[in-house]
Protein backbone atom coordinates (compact mmCIF):
# COMPACT_ATOMS: atom_id res chain seq x y z
CA UNK A 1 0.00 0.00 0.00
CA UNK A 2 1.22 3.47 -0.89
CA UNK A 3 2.34 5.47 2.08
CA UNK A 4 0.17 8.50 2.77
CA UNK A 5 0.99 9.76 6.25
CA UNK A 6 4.31 9.17 7.94
CA UNK A 7 4.79 9.98 11.62
CA UNK A 8 8.44 10.11 12.51
CA UNK A 9 9.45 9.91 16.16
CA UNK A 10 7.03 12.66 17.26
CA UNK A 11 7.11 14.27 20.70
CA UNK A 12 4.57 16.82 21.82
CA UNK A 13 4.40 18.90 24.95
CA UNK A 14 1.41 21.06 25.81
CA UNK A 15 2.29 24.61 26.75
CA UNK A 16 2.42 24.91 30.48
CA UNK A 17 1.07 28.12 31.94
CA UNK A 18 2.87 27.44 35.17
CA UNK A 19 6.63 27.78 34.83
CA UNK A 20 7.34 25.60 37.84
CA UNK A 21 5.56 22.45 36.84
CA UNK A 22 6.52 20.52 33.78
CA UNK A 23 3.49 19.56 31.76
CA UNK A 24 5.18 16.39 30.57
CA UNK A 25 4.95 14.99 27.11
CA UNK A 26 1.57 14.08 25.67
CA UNK A 27 3.33 12.22 22.88
CA UNK A 28 6.71 10.67 23.39
CA UNK A 29 8.24 9.14 20.35
CA UNK A 30 5.33 8.11 18.17
CA UNK A 31 6.12 6.31 14.93
CA UNK A 32 3.54 5.13 12.44
CA UNK A 33 2.70 5.06 8.78
CA UNK A 34 -0.75 5.19 7.31
CA UNK A 35 -1.38 3.91 3.81
CA UNK A 36 -3.52 5.56 1.17
CA UNK A 37 -7.09 4.27 1.32
CA UNK A 38 -6.54 2.48 4.60
CA UNK A 39 -9.02 2.41 7.49
CA UNK A 40 -7.04 2.72 10.69
CA UNK A 41 -8.46 2.84 14.20
CA UNK A 42 -6.38 4.40 16.94
CA UNK A 43 -7.49 3.31 20.39
CA UNK A 44 -6.29 4.12 23.86
CA UNK A 45 -7.73 5.18 27.19
CA UNK A 46 -8.09 8.83 28.24
CA UNK A 47 -4.79 10.65 28.28
CA UNK A 48 -3.04 8.18 26.02
CA UNK A 49 -2.32 10.95 23.54
CA UNK A 50 -4.60 9.72 20.81
CA UNK A 51 -6.55 12.97 20.45
CA UNK A 52 -3.35 14.99 20.58
CA UNK A 53 -1.99 12.88 17.76
CA UNK A 54 -5.18 13.37 15.74
CA UNK A 55 -4.65 17.12 15.76
CA UNK A 56 -1.16 16.63 14.34
CA UNK A 57 -2.36 15.07 11.09
CA UNK A 58 -3.56 18.38 9.62
CA UNK A 59 -1.12 20.68 11.40
CA UNK A 60 -3.47 22.05 14.03
CA UNK A 61 -0.69 21.07 16.45
CA UNK A 62 2.92 20.93 15.38
CA UNK A 63 5.28 18.37 16.88
CA UNK A 64 7.67 19.63 19.57
CA UNK A 65 10.22 17.21 18.12
CA UNK A 66 10.07 14.81 15.22
CA UNK A 67 8.15 15.30 12.03
CA UNK A 68 5.00 14.30 10.20
CA UNK A 69 4.67 14.02 6.45
CA UNK A 70 1.32 14.08 4.70
CA UNK A 71 1.65 12.89 1.14
CA UNK A 72 5.26 14.04 1.21
CA UNK A 73 4.53 17.47 2.74
CA UNK A 74 5.93 18.43 6.12
CA UNK A 75 3.13 19.55 8.45
CA UNK A 76 5.47 22.13 9.97
CA UNK A 77 5.90 23.85 6.61
CA UNK A 78 3.68 26.94 6.56
CA UNK A 79 3.48 27.02 2.76
CA UNK A 80 1.88 23.59 2.68
CA UNK A 81 -0.69 24.39 5.38
CA UNK A 82 -3.71 24.74 3.12
CA UNK A 83 -2.69 21.86 0.86
CA UNK A 84 -2.44 19.63 3.91
CA UNK A 85 -5.77 20.76 5.32
CA UNK A 86 -7.37 20.22 1.93
CA UNK A 87 -6.09 16.64 1.90
CA UNK A 88 -6.74 15.80 5.55
CA UNK A 89 -10.04 16.79 7.13
CA UNK A 90 -10.64 16.60 10.87
CA UNK A 91 -13.99 15.85 12.52
CA UNK A 92 -14.16 16.68 16.23
CA UNK A 93 -15.97 15.06 19.10
CA UNK A 94 -18.69 17.60 19.82
CA UNK A 95 -20.93 17.97 16.77
CA UNK A 96 -22.43 21.22 18.05
CA UNK A 97 -19.15 23.07 18.22
CA UNK A 98 -18.04 22.48 14.67
CA UNK A 99 -21.10 23.62 12.77
CA UNK A 100 -20.62 27.22 11.73
CA UNK A 101 -23.74 28.24 9.83
CA UNK A 102 -27.40 28.18 10.83
CA UNK A 103 -28.52 26.10 7.85
CA UNK A 104 -27.23 22.61 7.04
CA UNK A 105 -26.30 23.22 3.41
CA UNK A 106 -24.59 26.51 4.19
CA UNK A 107 -22.48 24.83 6.80
CA UNK A 108 -21.45 22.09 4.38
CA UNK A 109 -20.53 24.81 1.90
CA UNK A 110 -18.32 26.62 4.43
CA UNK A 111 -15.10 24.74 3.64
CA UNK A 112 -15.54 25.05 -0.13
CA UNK A 113 -16.26 28.75 0.23
CA UNK A 114 -13.00 29.16 2.10
CA UNK A 115 -11.14 27.38 -0.67
CA UNK A 116 -12.58 29.80 -3.22
CA UNK A 117 -14.44 27.17 -5.25
CA UNK A 118 -16.79 28.75 -7.85
CA UNK A 119 -20.44 28.96 -6.62
CA UNK A 120 -21.87 26.48 -9.12
CA UNK A 121 -19.32 23.85 -8.21
CA UNK A 122 -19.92 24.43 -4.48
CA UNK A 123 -23.60 23.71 -5.07
CA UNK A 124 -22.75 20.41 -6.77
CA UNK A 125 -20.22 19.41 -4.13
CA UNK A 126 -22.59 20.27 -1.27
CA UNK A 127 -25.47 18.28 -2.76
CA UNK A 128 -23.18 15.37 -3.43
CA UNK A 129 -21.61 15.45 0.05
CA UNK A 130 -25.03 15.59 1.69
CA UNK A 131 -26.16 12.59 -0.35
CA UNK A 132 -22.99 10.73 0.62
CA UNK A 133 -23.86 11.03 4.32
CA UNK A 134 -27.57 10.53 3.63
CA UNK A 135 -28.61 13.98 4.87
CA UNK A 136 -29.78 15.48 1.57
CA UNK A 137 -33.40 15.70 2.72
CA UNK A 138 -32.34 17.87 5.64
CA UNK A 139 -30.33 20.38 3.61
CA UNK A 140 -32.61 23.32 4.45
CA UNK A 141 -32.96 22.49 8.14
CA UNK A 142 -31.41 24.30 11.03
CA UNK A 143 -28.74 22.18 12.77
CA UNK A 144 -30.40 22.71 16.17
CA UNK A 145 -33.30 20.55 15.19
CA UNK A 146 -31.11 17.56 14.27
CA UNK A 147 -30.08 14.61 16.44
CA UNK A 148 -26.46 14.17 17.51
CA UNK A 149 -25.80 11.52 14.88
CA UNK A 150 -27.30 13.71 12.17
CA UNK A 151 -25.22 16.70 13.26
CA UNK A 152 -22.07 14.62 13.19
CA UNK A 153 -22.95 13.44 9.68
CA UNK A 154 -23.42 17.06 8.62
CA UNK A 155 -19.95 17.79 10.03
CA UNK A 156 -18.56 14.88 8.02
CA UNK A 157 -20.34 16.20 4.90
CA UNK A 158 -18.68 19.56 5.48
CA UNK A 159 -15.32 17.82 5.28
CA UNK A 160 -16.27 15.59 2.32
CA UNK A 161 -17.34 18.63 0.29
CA UNK A 162 -13.71 19.76 0.41
CA UNK A 163 -12.85 16.48 -1.34
CA UNK A 164 -10.13 15.35 1.07
CA UNK A 165 -8.09 12.21 0.61
CA UNK A 166 -8.16 11.43 4.29
CA UNK A 167 -10.62 12.07 7.12
CA UNK A 168 -9.44 12.00 10.72
CA UNK A 169 -12.26 11.53 13.21
CA UNK A 170 -11.46 12.39 16.81
CA UNK A 171 -13.89 10.33 18.90
CA UNK A 172 -16.81 11.26 16.65
CA UNK A 173 -19.24 9.00 18.47
CA UNK A 174 -18.34 9.76 22.09
CA UNK A 175 -21.29 12.09 22.59
CA UNK A 176 -23.84 10.11 20.60
CA UNK A 177 -26.49 7.58 21.49
CA UNK A 178 -26.13 4.02 20.10
CA UNK A 179 -28.30 4.81 17.07
CA UNK A 180 -26.30 7.92 16.21
CA UNK A 181 -23.10 5.93 16.69
CA UNK A 182 -24.22 3.31 14.17
CA UNK A 183 -25.20 6.00 11.66
CA UNK A 184 -21.79 7.65 11.87
CA UNK A 185 -19.80 4.42 11.76
CA UNK A 186 -21.83 3.16 8.78
CA UNK A 187 -21.13 6.42 6.98
CA UNK A 188 -17.41 6.22 7.69
CA UNK A 189 -17.01 2.63 6.54
CA UNK A 190 -19.03 3.35 3.41
CA UNK A 191 -16.85 6.35 2.55
CA UNK A 192 -13.77 4.22 2.99
CA UNK A 193 -15.03 1.35 0.84
CA UNK A 194 -16.84 3.23 -1.89
CA UNK A 195 -14.60 6.24 -2.33
CA UNK A 196 -11.29 4.95 -1.07
CA UNK A 197 -10.99 7.83 1.40
CA UNK A 198 -8.34 7.10 4.02
CA UNK A 199 -9.99 6.98 7.44
CA UNK A 200 -8.23 7.47 10.75
CA UNK A 201 -10.75 6.80 13.50
CA UNK A 202 -9.78 7.77 17.02
CA UNK A 203 -12.06 5.96 19.43
CA UNK A 204 -12.34 4.21 22.72
CA UNK A 205 -15.11 1.91 21.62
CA UNK A 206 -13.46 -1.37 20.78
CA UNK A 207 -16.54 -2.49 18.84
CA UNK A 208 -15.79 0.31 16.38
CA UNK A 209 -12.08 -0.41 16.18
CA UNK A 210 -12.84 -3.98 15.12
CA UNK A 211 -14.23 -2.68 11.83
CA UNK A 212 -10.90 -1.14 10.79
CA UNK A 213 -8.23 -2.66 8.55
CA UNK A 214 -5.65 -2.00 11.21
CA UNK A 215 -5.74 -1.07 14.88
CA UNK A 216 -3.09 1.02 16.59
CA UNK A 217 -3.14 0.93 20.38
CA UNK A 218 -1.69 3.92 22.19
CA UNK A 219 -0.69 4.22 25.80
CA UNK A 220 1.02 7.11 27.61
CA UNK A 221 2.02 8.86 24.43
CA UNK A 222 3.48 5.82 22.72
CA UNK A 223 2.32 3.17 20.32
CA UNK A 224 1.75 0.08 22.45
CA UNK A 225 0.95 -2.40 19.73
CA UNK A 226 -0.55 -2.46 16.27
CA UNK A 227 -1.88 -4.89 13.74
CA UNK A 228 -5.00 -6.31 12.17
CA UNK A 229 -7.93 -6.40 14.62
CA UNK A 230 -7.63 -10.16 15.33
CA UNK A 231 -3.92 -9.82 16.05
CA UNK A 232 -4.43 -6.92 18.42
CA UNK A 233 -7.48 -8.18 20.23
CA UNK A 234 -6.05 -11.63 20.80
CA UNK A 235 -3.63 -9.99 23.23
CA UNK A 236 -6.36 -9.65 25.82
CA UNK A 237 -3.97 -9.68 28.79
CA UNK A 238 -1.74 -6.95 27.40
CA UNK A 239 -4.72 -4.68 26.68
CA UNK A 240 -6.24 -5.29 30.10
CA UNK A 241 -2.96 -4.49 31.76
CA UNK A 242 -3.09 -1.08 30.08
CA UNK A 243 -6.63 -0.43 31.23
CA UNK A 244 -8.10 -1.08 27.82
CA UNK A 245 -11.19 -3.04 27.01
CA UNK A 246 -11.65 -5.64 24.34
CA UNK A 247 -15.01 -6.22 22.63
CA UNK A 248 -17.33 -8.19 24.91
CA UNK A 249 -17.52 -11.12 22.50
CA UNK A 250 -13.73 -11.29 22.36
CA UNK A 251 -13.48 -11.27 26.11
CA UNK A 252 -16.06 -14.03 26.52
CA UNK A 253 -14.25 -16.12 23.95
CA UNK A 254 -10.93 -15.48 25.66
CA UNK A 255 -12.23 -16.44 29.10
CA UNK A 256 -13.81 -19.64 27.84
CA UNK A 257 -10.63 -20.49 25.99
CA UNK A 258 -8.52 -20.01 29.08
CA UNK A 259 -10.88 -22.42 30.84
CA UNK A 260 -9.83 -25.00 28.33
CA UNK A 261 -12.62 -24.95 25.81
CA UNK A 262 -11.65 -25.42 22.21
CA UNK A 263 -12.53 -22.10 20.64
CA UNK A 264 -10.89 -20.01 17.89
CA UNK A 265 -7.99 -17.85 18.96
CA UNK A 266 -9.86 -14.58 18.53
CA UNK A 267 -13.42 -13.61 17.63
CA UNK A 268 -14.31 -9.99 17.07
CA UNK A 269 -18.06 -9.73 17.02
CA UNK A 270 -21.14 -11.30 18.53
CA UNK A 271 -22.04 -13.29 15.40
CA UNK A 272 -18.65 -14.98 15.16
CA UNK A 273 -18.72 -15.67 18.87
CA UNK A 274 -22.19 -17.23 18.66
CA UNK A 275 -21.09 -19.31 15.70
CA UNK A 276 -17.99 -20.52 17.54
CA UNK A 277 -20.03 -21.43 20.59
CA UNK A 278 -22.58 -23.20 18.44
CA UNK A 279 -19.88 -25.31 16.83
CA UNK A 280 -18.38 -26.04 20.23
CA UNK A 281 -21.68 -27.17 21.73
CA UNK A 282 -22.51 -29.21 18.65
CA UNK A 283 -19.14 -30.92 18.93
CA UNK A 284 -19.66 -31.63 22.62
CA UNK A 285 -23.09 -33.22 22.25
CA UNK A 286 -21.83 -35.67 19.66
Amino acid sequence: MEEFIKVNDVFYQYESFDEETDAGYALCGVNMTIGRGEFVAIVGHNGSGKSTLAKHFNSIYLPSAGEIFVDGMDTADDDCLFDIRKKVGLVLQNPDNQIVAGIVEEDVAFGCENLGVPPKEIRQRVDEALRAVDMYDYRRHSPDKLSGGQKQRVAIAGIIAMEPECIVLDEPTAMLDPKGRDEVIDTITRLNRERGITIILITHYMEEAVLADRVIVMDSGKVLTEGMPPEVFSQVELLKRHRLDVPQATELNHKLRSCGYELPECVLNAEDCAQALYELIKGMSL
Partner: peptide, 17 residues
Amino acid sequence: MAMECRCYNGGKGRTRM
Protein backbone atom coordinates in the same frame (compact mmCIF):
# COMPACT_ATOMS: atom_id res chain seq x y z
CA MET B 1 -10.24 24.72 15.47
CA ALA B 2 -13.04 23.33 13.31
CA MET B 3 -12.97 26.48 11.18
CA GLU B 4 -9.21 26.22 10.76
CA CYS B 5 -9.59 22.58 9.76
CA ARG B 6 -11.84 23.78 6.98
CA CYS B 7 -9.24 26.23 5.73
CA TYR B 8 -10.91 29.38 7.05
CA ASN B 9 -8.61 32.29 6.46
CA GLY B 10 -10.79 35.37 6.78
CA GLY B 11 -12.71 36.91 3.93
CA LYS B 12 -9.84 36.95 1.45
CA GLY B 13 -10.30 34.73 -1.60
CA ARG B 14 -13.58 33.43 -0.29
CA THR B 15 -16.46 32.56 -2.61
CA ARG B 16 -20.08 31.97 -1.69
CA MET B 17 -22.41 29.16 -2.62
